[in-house]
Amino acid sequence: MPPRRYPGNLSIYIIQEAALFLRRPFGIVAAKNGHITIIYRIVGKGTEEMSRLTVGDVLSIEGPLGEGVFTVSDMPTLLAGGGVGLAPLIFLAAQSPEPIVLIAGKTAVETKCWVPFFAPYAKKIYMTTDDGSAGIKGMATAALDEIFSHHLLQRIAVCGPTPMMKSVAQAAAVKKISCEVSLEKRMACGIGVCLGCTGEYKNRDGRYKVCADGPVFAAEEVFA
């Protein structure tokens, strides 16, 4: 079966008292019957204001943005995520045949809350926690040896903190496993004009724009 594609990121902007704020990019968790679902963490003024929204409040939304999206195929796939980077991987899990899932977090409380979202789709769920309170102690890479030894993976999709994505991508390169990463960057315009979310390609000349060229890239394009 040929690879399929799924939508990239969504940029969402709050109308009301947030006129001074730039748009916030969020990964899409689900899209069905004219409704979309996002998951966010309160980390600043914008998301704190979002937490006070009620039914009937109005949002200005642009998206899906960009051209880079995760590839969906029938090949054995690992979905690896950390923090709120796990949110868009839920969308991908729903379209992937029995993926292996790696959930990375700081504590058991932070990590276990994601399990119910992936359980309906995953063949196997692994967890890592920085403090060892759930799953394997350590960062996401601490689970990779066990995962690689039990599963003949052909693809890896990663979304989370940049150091985590880079380390998983490097491990995938050693095993010669195809790896895609969804970059997390602040996006002011969302259409590639402001150049606030750019980076330098690692495998060719030029610079990429996360909002327009991504957010999903082949790992070798963005990580050395």
Score class of each variant (00 low, 15 high):
M1F: 09
M1P: 04
P2I: 10
R4H: 10
R4L: 14
R4D: 08
P7A: 06
G8M: 03
G8S: 04
G8Y: 01
I14M: 10
I15S: 14
A19Y: 13
L20W: 12
F21S: 12
F26D: 03
A31P: 05
K32Q: 14
N33T: 09
G34N: 15
H35C: 12
I36S: 12
R41K: 14
V43H: 10
G44H: 13
G46E: 08
G46W: 09
E49M: 09
S51A: 15
T54N: 15
V55R: 13
D57K: 13
V58D: 11
S60C: 09
S60T: 03
E62I: 12
E62V: 08
G63P: 07
G63R: 10
P64A: 06
P64K: 06
G66T: 06
V69H: 08
T71V: 10
V72K: 04
S73L: 03
S73P: 06
M75P: 00
P76K: 09
T77V: 06
G81R: 02
G82Y: 08
V84F: 08
G85F: 01
A87E: 11
P88V: 00
I90Y: 01
I90Q: 01
L92G: 06
A93I: 10
A94W: 04
P97Q: 09
E98T: 12
I100W: 02
A104S: 13
A104P: 02
G105T: 08
G105L: 07
V109A: 15
E110T: 14
C113G: 07
W114T: 09
V115R: 14
F118M: 08
Y121A: 07
A122C: 09
A122V: 08
I125H: 01
D130M: 11
D131G: 09
D131C: 11
G132Y: 05
S133M: 03
S133W: 06
G135M: 03
K137L: 00
G138V: 07
A142Q: 04
A142Y: 01
A143T: 00
A143M: 03
D145V: 01
I147V: 04
I147W: 01
S149H: 12
R155G: 00
I156N: 04
I156D: 04
A157W: 00
C159G: 06
M164W: 01
M165I: 05
K166N: 08
K166W: 00
S167D: 15
S167N: 13
V168F: 03
V168H: 02
A169F: 04
A169N: 03
A172K: 04
A173R: 15
K176M: 10
S178L: 14
E180G: 07
E180F: 05
V181R: 06
L183M: 15
L183C: 07
M187W: 14
M187L: 15
C194Q: 11
C197S: 12
G199S: 12
E200K: 15
E200G: 09
K202L: 06
N203M: 05
N203V: 05
N203R: 05
D205L: 11
D205N: 13
Y208P: 01
V210G: 01
V210F: 04
G214C: 02
G214K: 00
F217C: 02
F217Q: 03
E220Q: 13
E221M: 01
E221S: 09
V222T: 03
V222N: 00
F223C: 05
F223G: 02
